[in-house]
Design a protein around this nucleic acid. Structure first.
Lengths: 104, 104
DNA sequence: TCTACATTTTGACAATTATCGAAGTATTAG
DNA sequence: CTAATACTTCGATAATTGTCAAAATGTAGA
């Protein structure tokens, strides 16, 4: 694994290391799975995420950008609303990392 | 997912968020897979890990403890040497987290 | 027991990070 | 155009973290 890859990985884990940011991400993941069941696309408004945490809007905005810069999510806009979407490619590489460890 | 679970998860990601600590962990993972192929038990000495990084022994010791406290590895002793072992149970729960995301 | 080796603990410091509130920007509705 | 809503940027601050060097501890061998 290249040094650049390690850097990228560390960045992703760093984004998930903060409790509030992790909660945002887990919300998105759960939403993604619910929508998967219904066969719909998954997305989540910032304002909706905000409701679940006791931190300010500006802080949430920072956190979302951090998740995005780390390659964990993508964002787009629907009018005034920010839409966050999980990046399945990144999920796959993270998942692979933890696979195939010998059970004891 | 309970609040305690989220805390634990964040702790694990936090442990992997530092580049040097991540390298230690990736070394252990790789070693674990090599040994898996050979059907042997896997373990790795601290002093061996140390060689690959340009940081002091005391720092590596801190990092190892951090990985252990985060539930990612277990340690034991063989004489003077510290032996580090990947925890497959934790690997499994982390792997599950990133599974089942809809591809686009 | 003395010594060398492997690791750990301690104390310090610089760098990074999480968060806030206020001001700023963009978008929509009226 | 104006006001309201949703988000972003800025500047500040407190808390956390990564690293080091030095001293301490534990272990094995002579």
């Amino acid at each position: 694994m290249s040094s650049a890859d390690v850097k990228k990985l560390a960045r992703a884990f760093s984004a998930l290391a903060n409790e509030n940011r992790l909660k945002l991400f887990l919300n998105l993941l759960e939403e993604s799975r619910l929508d998967l069941q219904k066969g719909r696309a998954h997305d989540c408004f910032l304002v909706k995420l905000l409701g679940n945490l006791s931190i300010g809007a500006s802080t949430v905005s920072h956190h979302v950008k951090e998740l995005e810069d780390a390659g964990l999510i993508e964002t787009s806009r629907d009018g005034k609303n920010l839409i966050c979407t999980i990046r399945p490619d990144t999920m796959r590489s993270l998942g692979d990392l933890f696979a195939n460890v010998r059970p004891r």
